[in-house]
Design a binder for these strands. Structure first.
Lengths: 241, 241
DNA sequence: TTACAAACATGACCGTAGTCATATAAAGTG
DNA sequence: CACTTTATATGACTACGGTCATGTTTGTAA
């Protein structure tokens, strides 16, 4: 349902959506303590192995069933460990899902610059931006899928995610847009009444609004088509008249 | 926390967000059957009374505590009925929350036309639209509140909401935008490269994107300011050059 | 070796949303 | 009236996410 590796393209959008959303108990906890001698590596490795067992079990199940259908009990049973053990390595089921989605995204992630570079140098910034949007839409539709995005959006709204983590959640896409916008302003294509930062922020907001709409209206909503039309308006709004 | 009636303004946005999202088991079930003689009204009234007891109990608790803190057990205890009874009248706890929010919104809702009519006849459509956005932002910030909006957005993403219900969720705001856009096009202020329908759709999407951002970045996000800036861009994008 | 701390593991246990077989009472029907 | 149907009500029960006191293994240091 989720894995569909053949489609190679970029997934900036999703990546940024999870960025620093990941609060991996294990990693965080160890960061400060595991730089001891080599001796206790055996201890650590055992834990790491258990964590991996849990993760693998979960991943297997996630690929076969809906997130909701995969219970923690099933995961621990499949992994052959006790339930309590799960919570040694993962903050919550949600945290594991986020972790899983992030890993998945990493696999299909490629350098967005490759996409931008594929355009001939003379291409207008608008065109490049629309090209990027197009790619993102394709990836979301064909690789990530609506179900996963839904989960992401729900998790982002979860109360138990610390504010700081959320704040930096979209640095990446933000940066890309920022660069493209800068290019457009410098070439005199876009006007600079708004600061780069603000413009980029609005673009990120827009793309999330569209994605959200897609999530709740799926399948009666053509993400790519709507996204392109929407950004066309936004671009017209910032173009030099 | 939620009730703050002194602030009288419109809440189209939220209203539309729930519209037809409400699947009230009782009402739906009865619609086809309760048009019998007057005799069975006593039966119905008893049920209606129980439902009211539950609703009132829930409302009381919701006004004192967070939605999450108000458990179904607490509600039925306060109402003095058994747990199973709750599920006769409400599909789920979420459904009740949605119902509650909708009712709440109805209370603070006023005719949006009053707002639009408050502008002098010569006012540009852009200006009116921005005025509307401004009002909506105020209402969301001061009356509805971020917590409730968060809940709404989460519920919209819930898997167990039937697609049909979601589809028509934004008719109202859609209509308002549509009218304003029509006015703008007729006066030659906006260009008509896109159909009215599509333009309105994009506006609705935009406002939800901004609200979503507000929900996850709260309190470090000025909804009104950002919304106005965003719509300024969109308006520039559809203005006749 | 002994003692102790830290990592690792366990499963009984809890709170909560939601279900269901069962029961009762009211309304319709003949 | 008796009989059936249907709305109403119940609370024990299940499923699931998450917790915690307790126990076990492993590494370290006296």
């Amino acid at each position: 349902m989720l894995i569909n590796q053949s489609y190679m393209t970029l997934v900036i959008l999703v990546k940024l959506l999870y960025n620093s959303l990941i609060y991996d108990k294990n990693t965080t906890k160890k960061e400060g303590k595991m730089l001891n001698k080599e001796k206790n590596r055996r201890k650590t490795e055992k834990g790491e192995k258990t964590k991996q067992k849990l993760y693998t079990a979960a991943a297997t199940l996630f690929n076969q069933h809906d997130f909701r259908e995969v219970t923690v009990d099933r995961i621990v049973k499949q992994a052959g460990v006790a339930k309590g053990t799960f919570y040694i390595y993962f903050e919550s089921k949600d945290a594991l899902i986020v972790s899983f989605l992030l890993d998945y995204v990493r696999k299909v992630d490629i350098d967005y610059r490759a996409v931008l570079d594929s355009f001939s140098p003379g291409t207008s910034s608008s065109r490049m931006l629309l090209g990027l949007i197009s790619k993102i839409a394709d990836t979301l539709t064909d690789v990530i899928g609506c179900t996963s995005m839904r989960t992401v959006y729900k998790l982002l709204l979860a109360d138990d995610i610390d504010t700081d983590a959320v704040k930096g959640y979209n640095r990446d896409l933000y940066k890309i847009f920022s660069e493209l916008l800068k290019r457009g302003i410098e070439s005199g294509e876009f006007c600079d009444t708004l600061s780069l930062d603000e413009m980029a922020r609005h673009f990120v907001m827009a793309i999330r609004g569209i994605c959200y709409e897609w999530c709740i209206r799926y399948p009666d909503f053509d993400l790519k088509e709507q996204a392109l039309a929407h950004f066309q308006i936004l671009l017209d709004g910032i173009k030099v008249k």
